[in-house]
Computed example of a mutant assay.
Amino acid sequence: MAEQIRLALYVQHLLGIGHLRRAAALARAYVDAGIDVLVLSGGVPVADVDFGAARVVQLPPCLAADSQFSALLDADGQVIDSAWKDRRRDLVLKETAAFRPDALVIEMYPFGRRQFRFELLPLLYWAQNANLLVASSVRDILVDKGRDDRVTEAADLVRRYFDLVLVHGDPRLVPFERTFPRAPAIADRLHYTGYVVEKPKTVGAVDRSGGEVLVSAGGGAVGAPLFTAALAARRLSSLKERRWRFVAGRNLPEADFAVLQQAAAIDPGIVVDRFRADFTELLANCHVSLSQGGYNTVMELLALHTPAVIVPFAEGQESEQALRAQLLAERNALDVLDADNLDPAALAATLTRRAQIGALPIDLDLDGARHSVEITLNALAKKRAGVLRG
């Protein structure tokens, strides 16, 4: 009987929960393929994120101080210091070594999460000495920080430490070099997996005619402006006789959540949830969706053929959501409105228009979790046989 393959997966979410949800979907796919999976999670714990049968090690949690990522805070809200970094680095190395993996997958680094070099570079050095297969797991679009030196550094790190770069996207929508210009330098490592999408339980034809207007903002940390605009748009909308459901997200500040609750207390047509474990099913059956443009939600909308209006989060240098949404809007797969000029009347009209048009299908690979497993296993076999390129 063949020995079970072991894979360690490192993920660090800082503001939203999209990175964590994508990592969880990958972990489940690896487990379903018979792989023993250890997840090293460095963000604040999030209930109801399903890692399947993977074992999760919760590292001392770290989060962003604000949407500008001005500082990194520990669980007590204090700026992390060198002693904190030393403790976490040692725990990462200890847990990974004890697990004895055959493969290591690091989410986002070296294309992001540069603040965590204090633990990731020692981990990569250890993995190289242990002759592990090492892969970077990265979404389709990177945020342009305007730093050519960082782009060059990332490419150099890939060539030095990584066997694979798993790009969770489809080049027919956006090639990786669109936001990572050094992609040709690592072309032999790049593998497009398709988009990683939560598999919906709902199948078959859906009658949306009696559905609700579903308003959401991922984890909710930066969702307040969208919710405020949606409340104003409801009063002006031809859809105001429908139920409007606001799924606030666990990270929406309490003061902003209270505003939604007050609106629901006045208007029986408004329903407010902090979190819904069946969110994918809500997306599958709603009349129209209004949301921010997070990777996971957008891909679920496409997979479920849900009529959607997107208001991308674009504070600071965040450009990822806006670019992906715009590329999809150009194909009429959804509608996009600018968060900086979110007029309630325009929002109301756009929701009505998209609900009438419906979701127009777009041909994209949405089987990214399964393809990630196939690519990883194929590369591991080649590495063991000494024929992996690099």
Rank of each mutant, 00 (worst) to 15 (best):
A322K: 10
E281C: 09
G146K: 05
L59T: 07
W84S: 05
F51Q: 09
R384E: 04
Y10N: 01
L282V: 10
R160I: 03
G211P: 06
D278R: 02
A64I: 08
S67E: 15
D50G: 10
T193E: 07
Q292N: 13
D188L: 09
S216Q: 07
E3T: 06
K85Q: 15
K383H: 15
R354V: 15
Q58K: 06
A130T: 02
D86F: 05
L360W: 09
A2M: 11
I270M: 10
L334W: 03
P225F: 12
Q4P: 06
H305Y: 06
V56P: 01
L377D: 03
A322L: 14
T96P: 04
R159T: 08
F51M: 09
H19W: 11
L91F: 06
Q68G: 08
L260G: 00
T202C: 05
A27D: 08
T179K: 00
S67L: 10
E254S: 11
G294P: 06
S137P: 05
Y10V: 13
L239E: 12
P181S: 15
G52P: 11
Y109G: 02
K94N: 13
V311F: 10
G18M: 09
G194P: 04
T96I: 12
S137F: 11
A130S: 06
F176Y: 14
Q262K: 14
G220W: 11
D144A: 08
I186C: 03
I5T: 11
T193C: 14
G294A: 11
R28W: 11
H191P: 00
S136G: 08
H287F: 09
A264F: 12
Q128P: 02
A8G: 02
Q115M: 11
A369C: 12
R384T: 04
D170G: 06
P60L: 13
L342P: 13
D335R: 13
V79T: 11
P61H: 12
G269D: 06
V373W: 01
Q12C: 09
G146H: 07
A308P: 00
A65T: 05
L123K: 00
D149E: 14
G34V: 10
A355G: 10
P60F: 12
I80Q: 07
A205M: 10
L7H: 00
A322T: 08
R100K: 14
D340T: 13
Q356W: 09
A325G: 09
H13T: 05
A329F: 05
